[in-house]
Write a protein that binds this DNA or RNA. Structure first.
Length: 403
RNA sequence: CGGGGUAUAGUGUAACGGCUAGCACGAGUCCUUUGGGAGGAUUUAGUCUCGGUUCGAAUCCGAGUACCCCGACCA
């Protein structure tokens, strides 16, 4: 990609109203643009990062047997009435279609996936089953805030699991905790993310949230000083439910993922049953597992940055390499072609502007690896290679670079 | 949804009720520059909307709209 044609414009100034670091940096570097309160456009750079996150999540979920599908955003009122959530779910966006038919924009998809699963699940042989999608969700939050950390429309991975027994649900649930840890590790936030006990487990006592420590977060968690498991303030148990320790560290955090054991909460209203080995009808048990992708992206920026800009973890970097030309010749262009032939995704700064501006923008954008071509490096038939997160740069011979 | 605040050019900002609404960045053209947001010349572009007060409104008043913050809410 030639940077001269990339759809973006970097800003020296942060948007007036930006409070969080991620909002400021992502806007300044041209990843996102606010359309209205809690509604954001993802520009080419931002979309590339979102796609990277999507790829990581898809890979980890499929590793544990998840099958991807795509459910509609437009969901009929009747389904929500069956669970009582047409009225109980305050944040539902409701709208009328032809002939006065009413819909909700999908805020979550238990009401859609459960009756769908009923069309396929008949026997214990059809279980377990793991279905997921990565799709836009709509929630009419009374108050959106902190850039892409809390929005009204957001890309979400929602996974639903279907089981024939409690043991099977428990075992898959544990596997998902590990999957989530791998996902957050690859997205560069594992070191600050805590497994957190939270309310809302309709079937089990607690649900689990994955809370990433940041001042930009809106949740308060108490991290157990002994076992490291956290609990959401909303629980406020005196003793750690895991290890009975009573010393906690209070932290502000943002919820980057959550998992629930739904049990029969949604299978009952939709009559989701299966025939067991002995031929008797039993209720399917469900779990659900969510991750907000945009929020995850914002969270990663929230902790992966410095004074100059974003420092993407390698797997989220919008491009593999930021190639920066500081000389007049055609060498950089040739190197660009060679890197592309090698299969690398390269952002090539071919613009005729000052070196300082190019370097400053490169730091702001935060691509994980930077290669500079200049008279200085060419004298040694080399280029300069530098990781965004490190101070040290090394000279690499051009012939070694492309072999 | 309760409370508070803000609205001036693409962005960030300045202007006592009174002169042609100023500055920086950006963008366009030309020249010079090119390893840390370059210099000169020149051009471009603005008072959220509607109404009111006033000789005169960016400024005061009212309504609307939008955005931000605090709280509540958040399967």
């Amino acid at each position: 990609m030639l940077q001269s044609t990339l759809f973006y414009s970097s800003k020296k100034e942060a948007p007036k109203d930006s409070e969080s670091v991620s909002h400021s940096l992502l806007t300044r570097a041209g990843y996102i643009d606010q359309i209205s309160a809690g509604v954001y456009a993802f520009l080419p750079l931002g979309l590339k990062v979102l796609r990277k996150i999507e790829g990581i999540i898809r890979e980890e979920i499929e590793k544990e047997g998840g099958q991807e599908l795509l459910l509609p955003a437009l969901t009929p009122k009747e389904n929500w009435q069956k669970t009582g959530r047409w009225d109980a779910f305050d944040a539902l966006f409701k709208l009328k279609g032809a002939n006065g038919k009413e819909y909700a924009l999908g805020a979550t998809h238990e009401e859609i996936i459960s009756p769908l699963a009923k069309k396929v699940i008949f026997s214990y042989k059809d279980l377990p089953l793991y279905l997921f999608q990565i799709q836009d969700k709509f929630r009419n939050e009374l108050r959106a805030k902190s850039g892409i950390l809390r929005t009204r429309e957001f890309l979400m991975k929602d996974l639903y699991s279907f089981h024939s027994s409690q043991e099977d649900l428990d075992s898959y649930y544990k596997k998902q905790i590990k999957s989530y840890n791998r996902i957050f590790s690859r997205c560069g936030i594992k070191k600050k993310t805590y497994l957190t006990l939270a309310s809302g487990g309709s079937f089990s006592k607690y649900s689990h949230e994955f809370q990433m420590e940041t001042e930009a977060g809106e949740d308060t968690i108490y991290v157990c000083g002994k076992c490291g498991i956290a609990q959401n303030k909303e629980i406020k148990a005196d003793k750690c439910p895991e290890c009975q320790n009573s010393v906690f560290i209070e932290k502000k955090a943002v919820e980057v993922g959550n998992i629930f054991k739904l049990g029969d909460k949604y299978s009952l209203p939709f009559d989701l049953k299966f025939k067991d080995k002995d031929g008797k009808d039993k209720t399917v048990l469900m779990g659900c597992y969510g991750i907000g992708l945009g929020r995850l992206m914002g969270a990663s920026v929230e902790i992966n940055n410095d004074q100059k800009g974003i420092i993407w973890p390698e797997e989220l970097s919008p491009f593999d390499i930021h190639l920066i030309q500081l000389n007049k010749g055609s060498e950089a262009k040739e190197i660009y072609s060679l890197l592309k032939k090698k299969g690398l995704d390269v952002l090539y700064d071919d613009r005729d502007i000052s070196a300082g501006q190019k370097l400053a923008e490169a730091d702001l954008i935060g691509i994980s690896k930077r290669i500079i071509v200049s008279e200085k490096t060419l004298e040694k038939k080399s280029v300069e290679v530098k990781e965004r997160g490190r101070d040290r740069a090394i000279l690499v011979k051009i012939k070694d670079l492309v072999k």
